[in-house]
């Protein structure tokens, strides 16, 4: 059975505030499917991505998020990652002093269960000895860096520190390739890329796509959809999914603009204001 992420009547507010950002989101993403989620600035797309991953700044007030039928709302972000969720950030965070390879080795070791048991017998062993073996890890990392067009020198660089916008996005894809999630949310992974970088990123997504991966691709633009073919397109507006359809919906949206959505879905009071 393919894995399934179900978002049900989800309402989310900013923690320590009354600001409600998500106002009843319904969406289902299964392994093997590619969904594009399009919507204007400030409509709540990133909030949805964060809420799925368990960002502490957002509070679910109603509804549920289920992975394979079980609610994940009580799980820490790392536990959600362990269950096969991944979020490619719109703005990847720099962590100074932490090398990419050190970070990724720890991440992979957690996700793949290496760290569940002590290194030797019942003793904890030397700190770090329960991580994925260095040699194996390095071989896999270097192979994937080549495959996803990330220069090998980045292994020793500090995570996202001083990376250009395009480099950050490529490294997000690399991390996704290493962590092999079941369901990935990609928040504007196509933004801020020049045409070549866009192609590299899109190629990366296509390499990873397949029966074992479900993708929720958040984007503003039709252009990435020229490379990555979604099975479903959703329009997000004012904290909700307001329209769903096939790839043709993206084209219509590109042609008519968000104004078209606004006119249909704004509350009357707002339209006249």
């Amino acid at each position: 059975m393919p894995s399934e992420l179900v978002i049900k009547d989800l309402r989310v507010k900013v923690a320590d505030s009354d600001l409600e950002v998500l106002k009843g989101v319904n969406l289902t993403v299964r392994q093997g499917e590619i969904h594009a989620l399009m919507g204007p600035n400030g409509s709540g797309k990133s909030t949805l991505a964060y809420a799925i991953m368990g960002h502490p700044h957002y509070e679910v007030t109603e509804g549920d998020i289920l992975l394979d039928g079980e609610s994940i709302l009580e799980l820490e972000p790392n536990e959600r990652a362990r269950k096969g969720l991944f979020l490619a950030f719109q703005y990847p965070v720099a962590v100074p002093g932490v090398s990419m390879s050190n970070f990724l080795r720890t991440a992979v070791s957690n996700i793949r269960g290496y760290t569940d048991k002590p290194a030797v017998g019942d003793k904890p062993g030397v700190i770090g000895s329960n991580l994925m073996p260095m040699k194996e890890f390095r071989a896999e990392l270097l192979q994937k860096m080549d495959e996803f067009h990330v220069d090998r020198s980045f292994a020793r660089r500090y995570l996202n520190e001083g990376f250009s916008g395009g480099e950050k996005k490529r490294v997000e894809i690399l991390q996704m390739a290493m962590l092999q999630p079941k369901i990935a949310i990609m928040d504007e992974t196509d933004s801020g890329l020049d045409i070549d970088a866009l192609r590299i990123v899109a190629d990366g997504v296509n390499k990873l796509a397949g029966p074992n991966l479900g993708i929720l691709l958040i984007t503003h633009y039709q252009r990435i959809l020229n490379y990555v073919k979604p099975h479903f397109v959703h329009v997000f507006y004012n904290g909700r999914v307001v329209m769903s359809g096939g790839p043709e919906l993206a084209a219509t949206l590109e042609e008519k603009g968000y104004q078209w959505v606004k006119q249909q879905f704004d509350e009357p009071a707002l339209v006249t204001a």
Partner: peptide, 18 residues
Amino acid sequence: QLFYLMSRGLSEEEATTM
């Protein structure tokens, strides 16, 4: 930073330590 690292599978303690 903490959330970013945790979203990659690191526990809060591991992320803080890192």
